[in-house]
Design a binder for these strands. Structure first.
Lengths: 238, 238
DNA sequence: CGCCAGATTGATACACATCAATTCTCGTGG
DNA sequence: CCACGAGAATTGATGTGTATCAATCTGGCG
């Protein structure tokens, strides 16, 4: 049941963030084909763009895995400042916590399919299959490493370094973007809230790079990396 | 063997950071008593204050657990900017990665005893005992949650909010500091590099809080929280 | 066609960095 | 016991990168 729980709901940008659909609104969640190491332990759930999968403060009863689309983990302070901790894509695990409440909200950046696991069931499955536990640990520790890199970015990099790093990072994860064409699933605000900047600064830096011919974009969501070398020099320390 | 590997050594503050002692210099590493869930899988190692346990870029052959003292995980860019990802205390695991090279250096903040594990041996031990795997996962996912909170701090908090948050956080982890007395193992520079600030800003904010009677300190490393309420209000979103 | 959210651009403000002295602390040796 | 030196902390003066405030522009959609 999707009862209205007493979670810390964002105070400022309320209108934008909606609860996930009640289960009844999704008569037939599409079956997931690529189950990976997780067999049939979970349930596939679809979530519409810009809806929350869960809110910070909700009881942490489930853990998840992205099947398709993009998810963001984020937190909003009382006065409306928002930080996005990570953008997650196909295969990424999230909410794999031991605390009794979620500390970050998870929201669908695009229309998304996620697989939902009961924590209890996963614990049992791991007892039977140590390799499953190994897989989970590998993914979580990978995310820890990514978070640490993100800390360096937020703590010590300038605006242009952050953006260069972000773009390069995106291209690495983009499956079929061998050239330099990147499809940005997120908008400039998400962009800014991930990098600890404002929308205006993101816009200025992006258009600065565009003017210098380092990147190109007609529509804001369709960026091409023209001079990867320059970008990598800007990005510096990986 | 502690062969000189081809690791990315910090270019700027070279003098400060020294290799760990060769094993031969530690004839009898003191036996560790509190082995926790890890039995006798590891070896106790002592590392002197301000020496590195390993460097970013070194082959990631071992993982560690802090037995006593404080360890910092940090990265230095070519031009000398430094970010500390975390301060680790007794019981904390680190270097629990699947990548082939460490991405962050680990350094002793105080004189430190760490337990060192071979990754291969741990993997085997986990196969035998799933609960060990569960313990490890719990710790790593706890660190991921802490890293995410740190991201919010670096991305969206002001200098005073960062410092208030840091102080409160420290007190929570300090074992016997029920009152408000905190013993800072790290100096102002570490302080600043964890919070993404400069030493000067840290000093100014700390002395500002002191003037307002929120905190007190005679020596810089011995801080007392006088008005926890005020601090918590400053710290805001946990 | 007109609306609206998102993106861009411009003018200005400000929090923190940077540069530059002091001051403090503590270990060391005369 | 005190002068000395060195590293850390503090304090002050000034600079600057990014935020903030405020329009304006753009493209999609009813």
């Amino acid at each position: 049941m999707y009862a209205i729980t007493t979670s810390t709901r964002p105070a400022a940008p309320v209108s934008a963030m909606l609860r996930p659909f009640p289960a009844s609104a999704h008569p037939q969640p599409k079956a997931v084909d690529s189950l990976g190491a997780f067999g049939r332990l979970g349930t596939a759930i679809k979530v519409e763009r810009n809806r929350a999968i869960y809110f910070e403060g909700d009881d942490a009863e489930h853990c998840y895995r992205v099947v398709s689309g993009m998810v963001r983990l984020c937190k909003v302070t009382e006065d409306g400042r928002r930080q996005i901790a990570a953008f997650l894509i196909e295969g990424d695990l999230f909410a794999w916590t031991d605390q009794e409440a979620y500390q970050f909200s998870a929201e669908a950046v695009t229309d998304v399919t996620v697989e939902k696991f009961s924590r209890a069931r996963i614990d049992e499955a791991v007892k039977d299959s140590p390799s499953l536990g190994r897989t989970i640990l590998a993914m979580v520790s990978g995310q820890l490493a990514a978070a640490h890199d993100h800390l360096l970015l937020l703590g010590r990099m300038t605006a242009s370094e952050r953006i260069a790093t972000f773009l390069i990072h995106l291209r690495k994860r983009q499956p079929g973007a061998a050239s330099g064409a990147i499809e940005l699933a997120m908008n400039r605000t998400d962009f800014a809230d991930d990098l600890g900047l404002t929308v205006e600064t993101v816009s200025r830096v992006m258009n600065g790079l565009k003017r210098r011919g380092v990147i190109a974009f007609a529509a804001p969501e369709n960026v091409q990396l023209k001079q990867s070398g320059t970008l990598e020099r800007l990005a510096m320390a990986a």
